[in-house]
Computed example of a mutant assay.
Amino acid sequence: MKARADEVKAEKRRGKKPDPETEVLAKIAEMPDSDRVMGERIHEIVKANAPELSPKLWYGMPSYAKDGKIVCFFQAAAKFNARYATFGFEAEANLDDGSMWATAFALTKLTPADEKKIAALVKKAVS
């Protein structure tokens, strides 16, 4: 929450919003190596498979929005000293599958199979 409050304050001080993609890439670049590598790859996957999503910081995390509403996000393991990073989806994601479906995935690394699954989920989320 503090990160989001800082984001809003910074926007007000500058009088205009900085380029959101530049902010997302800068946040990813600050991450420890294991998180940074996954964050960079996820950014590439989302941009390639859902170009209609706009990158933006959300509570200090790289996220991707459609019409201003968050669809998916990447949470670095280091953010909460967790043993895994998280790739998650918000309510705007079109992932409904019956009465129960996954909205977040734990990541310790990204394999080619993982990348394909994330690409398919992102495509479905914006469909």
Rank of each mutant, 00 (worst) to 15 (best):
R41P: 01
E21C: 05
G88I: 00
A102G: 12
K2M: 13
K2V: 11
K17F: 08
T86Q: 11
A120R: 06
D96H: 15
D97A: 10
A10G: 09
G88W: 01
M1D: 15
E30I: 06
G98T: 07
V8H: 13
L25M: 13
A104T: 13
Y64E: 07
R36L: 00
A65C: 00
D67S: 13
K56D: 11
K27I: 07
V37A: 15
I28K: 00
G68R: 00
G60T: 09
M31Y: 09
R13K: 15
E23L: 07
D97M: 05
L107M: 04
Y64I: 04
V8A: 08
K79R: 14
F89V: 04
A93V: 00
R4E: 15
T111G: 04
E115K: 00
E44L: 01
F80C: 13
P62S: 07
K27S: 11
E115D: 10
R41S: 07
E92Q: 15
K124N: 06
A29K: 02
D114Y: 12
A106C: 08
F87R: 01
L95T: 06
A50Y: 06
K16F: 13
F105G: 06
V8T: 13
K124W: 00
K69P: 08
M100Y: 12
P62V: 03
R41T: 14
E21M: 07
H43S: 04
K17C: 10
Y84E: 15
P32L: 02
E90D: 14
K79H: 15
M61I: 10
A119Y: 01
P55Q: 05
P62G: 01
K2N: 11
A104M: 12
A50F: 03
A3V: 06
K69L: 05
L95Q: 03
F105K: 03
E90F: 12
T103Y: 15
A65K: 00
K66T: 10
K9S: 13
A29Y: 09
A82T: 10
A119Q: 05
A119I: 02
P32A: 04
D67N: 12
T108N: 09
E92Y: 10
A113W: 09
K9L: 13
Q75D: 14
L110S: 02
E40V: 05
N81T: 14
A5C: 08
D33Y: 15
D33G: 10
D33E: 14
A65H: 07
K123D: 12
A76V: 01
I45D: 08
P51T: 08
F105Q: 11
D114C: 02
Y64V: 03
T86K: 04
K66P: 06
K117P: 02
L107D: 08
P20K: 02
F87G: 01
